[in-house]
């Protein structure tokens, strides 16, 4: 099968990573939009959550899709990293990066951090298996609830280290996207020749927007702007 040929080559692997990465980007943007409903109020947000859950099979299909995307993304990242490590068995004593961005150089470790984040995040907000509470629990939202997403979010971000963890993770997400949103389009060959190939306006907008959009929620809650 031709996909297999593609999969076997380094370019194919990178293409898979770009496609899955872009799927994740789309999800993240949508997810961010959903999260921002926190600022509208609990009714609106919970209704949205309820709507999502009511879609039943469709929701599971999307979840499955996301899962496959993440797994493929990670698998390709893993394989390409191994290939790259093998490609330079003896390293330089001194190598000075010239133009590569911090973002590009932290994709791999940043990705691991994102993975950690995602695992924690699902246990946190989706299953509620790990749900640290503030030392003085808020009376309004006593504990994790499968129906009150708004309450979950608000009580979760009363916990300083949780907020810190989210904020830091979002920084890494921003970095990942600062490179990824630009490079994926190039990987797929969807660019016109340019006199400044390293310039990345759209990706910067996406990365910063995603960062602001996500960070706003925990920070606003922690500061008591949303309660």
């Amino acid at each position: 099968m031709w996909l297999l040929t593609l999969y076997r080559s380094t370019i194919g692997k990178k293409v898979i990573m770009a496609v899955t990465g872009l799927v994740l980007v789309l999800f993240v943007i949508g997810h961010m939009a959903g999260n921002l409903q926190v600022f509208i109020g609990s009714a609106k947000m919970n209704a949205y959550a309820a709507f999502l859950k009511s879609t039943g099979e469709l929701l599971w299909l999307v979840r499955l899709g996301l899962l496959v995307a993440v797994l493929l993304h990670i698998l390709m990242a893993w394989q390409l990293t191994r290939i790259k490590n093998a490609a330079r068995p003896v390293d330089y004593v001194l190598r000075q990066p010239q133009v590569s961005t911090l973002a590009s150089r932290t994709m791999r470790w940043g990705g691991v951090l994102l993975l950690t984040f995602i695992v924690f995040h699902i246990l946190h907000f989706t299953t509620g298996a790990v749900f640290p509470m503030a030392s003085r629990p808020d009376v309004t939202y006593p504990a994790f609830s499968h129906t009150d997403v708004y309450g979950n979010v608000v009580s979760a971000f009363r916990v300083p280290w949780v907020v810190a963890f989210y904020v830091v993770s979002m920084l890494f997400l921003m970095l990942h996207l600062f490179h990824g949103a630009w490079s994926s389009v190039r990987t797929l060959g969807l660019v016109k020749p340019s006199s400044h190939p390293l310039r990345r306006r759209a990706a910067t907008v996406v990365a910063v927007a995603v960062w602001l959009g996500f960070t706003a929620v925990p920070v606003a809650i922690f500061l008591g702007v949303v309660r």
């Binding site: 370019i11 490609a87 133009v99 590009s104 150089r105 190939p197």
Partner: peptide
């Protein structure tokens, strides 16, 4: 050779 992850150093 390794794959390209668009570091841009080559250019």
């Amino acid at each position: 050779f390794g794959g390209c992850t668009l570091f841009g150093e080559c250019q």
